[in-house]
Structure formats: C-alpha cells, structure tokens
Simulated assay, not measured.
Amino acid sequence: MNQIGPDGVETLPHPLIDVPAVPASCRSVLVERARYEWRPTDGGDPAALAEQFLAAHGLPVTDLTRPAAHESTGVCGAALYVSAAAGALMAGGPTGAPNPAPALPELAVVVYGHAPRVAEPPLSPTQGRWWLGEWQDSWTPRQHAAAVRAVRAAIGRGDVYQVNVVGHAAARYTGDPGPALARLAGLPGARYGGTLRGDGWMIGCASPETLIEVTDGRVSTRPIKGTRPATAAGRRDLLASAKERAEHIMIVDLERNDLARVARTGSVRVDELFAVRRWCDLWQAESTVSAALADGLGLAALLRAVCPGGSVTGAPKHAALHHVAALEPVGRGAGMGALGWVGPGRIDLGLTIRTAAADADRLHLWAGGGITWDSDPDAEVAEAAAKAAPVRALLAAD
C-alpha cells in the first residue's frame, strides 16, 4: 500500500490534470492532495478501502443518494482507477493471470483540491527522442482463435452464454511516454479520454464506454457491444446482424441485473437500445441502462455491483470470469477496468477499453471482444486488431 499525504508545496507550478471526466472548469486549478495505491499483497477489500479513503478526505461517498454540491474551495474530487483484477476481486471472482506491468497498482485513488490559477508548466523534458519499438503480442492469432473456439465449446456445454476474450501486447520505448499517452484523448469518440500517472507508471485512455455514472441519485451504465468498419455498408451490416444484436442484448440484460442489486425496486429501465455510434474508424452499438439508487447506498457497494464491467467479462459474469482466468495467458492490467472521477454528487467512470499503460520501459495495450456461439474465430481476431490499430498508430507518432 502506498498512501501519500498533502504535498503542501503551493508555490510550485501545478501540472494540468487531465483525468477522464474531471470537471472542465477545474482542470487548470487542481493540485494533488493525497493518494492511495493498493496491490493484492496489501490485503483487504479494495472497494471498502477506496470508499474509506475518499470519505476520510471529505468526499460524500458513504451515501450516494444524499445531495452534495461542488465547492470552489477545498477538495474538488478524486481520480479513481480500478483494474480488471481488482474488479474481479470485488465481484468475488478469480483475478486471472498476473499483471504484465507490475509497477501499476490495482487500485489508485488520487484526491485533488483547488489551488490558485497558474500558468501551465512546460512539458517535461524527454529522455531523448520518443521511440516506440515493435509490438509483441502475448499470444499468436492462432492461440487467440483457439481461445475463441474454447469459449464456443463452453457455450455448447451450457457453461456460459458469452465470454469476452482479451489479448495483450507490449512494446519497448525510450523517452517520455506522457505526451504519447496524452494523445489518446484526442481520438474521435473518446468520451473518457485522459491520463493518470504515478511513480513509475502511467495510464492513457481513449474509451468511449461509460461503466457507471451517478448524478442526483440516479445511476447509468452504457454498455458497448457490436463492431463494424465505419462505412455505410458497415453500419447497415451492424444493424442487420442477428449475432451482434443477440450478443448486445445479453450484456444489456446483465447490466440490468447488476444495477438491480443497488437500485430502488422497480426503477431499472433501458433508456436506449442498440444505438449505433462511431469510435475512430469503427461503428459500435451502445445502450443506456439506468436506475434510481437505493437509499443509503455507498460507493463500495456500487463498485461491487458493477465491477468488472459486463461488456468485458460476459454472461453470467462469475462463470465468464472463470473462463477468462483459464484462457488468457497475461493479466488485463489497466485494460478492462475503470477510470474516471468521483466528486460531490457525481461519479463518472469509464470502462478502460482502448487503454494503454506505461511502466519503466514498456507500453502495454489490451484489446478483445465478446464471444458467442455464432462467433467466427478469424473474425474475432481481426476485430481485436481493428480496435487496437488506432491506439497503436497514435502511440507510435512522434
């Protein structure tokens, strides 16, 4: 465990905070006040520890239905990062293979306060020119396809209805990874574009997907399932695909069930179903599920209900997590977790798809897709590559 108290250095320039979902009006005046990082060797329940740390620093997270207002002085809010492994632990499932970037924590909570407005500092000097080496995949296309076939066999046995299968790749780098990871926020459709960094690690996110949003006591999730090239023909094909629609509706039903665990009875509803939206060069199908939170519900209970996200696990969630742990040779690390903002009266966490992370000398990237009975192994391998391609290209740019 790593906990850092207030820095107290008000006179130094403060870096621009670009955590996904940070209030736009506060980005240039935020300063880090305290930090908590958790790894499995620390023990304890990461959901409860996150809630306790935030509450101890003045954020109202023990009852998310209680009205709270953002203040222009004092604590503004906090960045919250939950890895896929921490989410699996919160759900009572297996955490899977080890994190390929062990410098990354599995949970990070960073509390920010307001500081006097200052000019943005210059970018940190690079350690030589930025260079990114060749990506090395943790499994071959043939191994990826074999995992797809294994999931189809499990579906045939009745073990699961759907499992999300994710691959990992890593590339050596030299220089400062900060500017490269920050560029991801500029990808079209990156609703949760931004970064979070710590000692020896950094995460860059270009996610379009909402894991959980809480405003005025109402909770929403926006699962994304179904992908096609962003062409007119691709859009028509996505809308007409029985396979993609069935896969999507399975996850919508799973998310309805997840929200029902923390909602007022009878309040869960599907606000939008199978809306086609664009991310970079892909069409994707998105739905919105919402509910009124149960009275007295705290952040820890909410995280246990929704983590890890159903669109990156499968259905039923617990059974899918066991197949993920058995099939994926490398841990999901910063991918397929959650990253966003917790503030007074507002929580907004994106699902960390289209997400990369840096450790001391390598960049890491994860991509995959949901597997159903109708999945074609070669098509699933190609879809994962299509999702990773825009991120890889932007990270390689000078």
Rank of each mutant, 00 (worst) to 15 (best):
L184K: 02
E380A: 12
A86K: 02
V111H: 15
A379K: 08
A147F: 13
H248R: 07
I4C: 15
P208F: 09
A79Y: 01
N257M: 05
R235K: 10
S375A: 01
C76F: 10
E134G: 06
H323F: 06
V9F: 08
C280M: 11
R269H: 12
D271G: 09
L394E: 13
R278Y: 04
P344M: 12
D376C: 14
G93T: 00
G234N: 04
D348A: 08
S25I: 14
L299T: 12
P177V: 15
A396M: 03
Q127R: 03
T231K: 01
S267Y: 00
H322C: 04
A147V: 13
S290L: 01
A396Y: 00
G350S: 03
C76Q: 09
L12H: 05
E255D: 06
R142K: 09
G337T: 12
D18Y: 02
L302A: 04
A55I: 05
A50Y: 05
V312Y: 03
E272V: 02
I353S: 12
T215A: 07
R149D: 02
L59Y: 06
A230C: 10
P344V: 10
G350C: 02
A388C: 06
L259K: 12
P223R: 00
P308H: 09
Q143G: 07
Y161Q: 01
L349K: 11
P125W: 00
A356H: 10
T41Q: 11
G204H: 13
L239R: 07
T288L: 11
I4Q: 13
W131E: 13
P20M: 05
T221D: 10
T195N: 10
L254C: 04
P390W: 03
A360V: 03
D398W: 13
T95L: 04
V214P: 14
C76N: 03
A180D: 05
T174E: 10
A325Y: 05
A21R: 11
L299P: 10
E247S: 06
Y192F: 11
V268F: 00
A232R: 06
S267L: 00
A84K: 08
A315G: 04
A79H: 06
G58P: 02
V29N: 04
W366L: 04
V109Q: 10
H144Q: 11
L181I: 05
A84Q: 14
G370D: 00
H318C: 07
C26P: 01
S72C: 00
L49R: 13
A240E: 00
R236T: 10
L302K: 04
R33D: 08
P40M: 03
E383R: 08
A292W: 05
G193Y: 12
R142N: 06
V163C: 14
I203L: 08
L303G: 13
L299M: 06
D376R: 07
P125Q: 01
L187D: 00
A357F: 10
A103Q: 05
T11I: 09
A84S: 07
A84E: 03
I212M: 08
P125D: 03
V19A: 04
R183F: 02
R236M: 12
D398P: 13
A242T: 14
D216K: 12
G314F: 13
G340I: 01
G186K: 04
A55E: 15
L303P: 04
R346F: 13
T215C: 02
A182Q: 14
L54Q: 12
A79D: 07
A56I: 08
R354T: 12
A150P: 02
W283A: 00
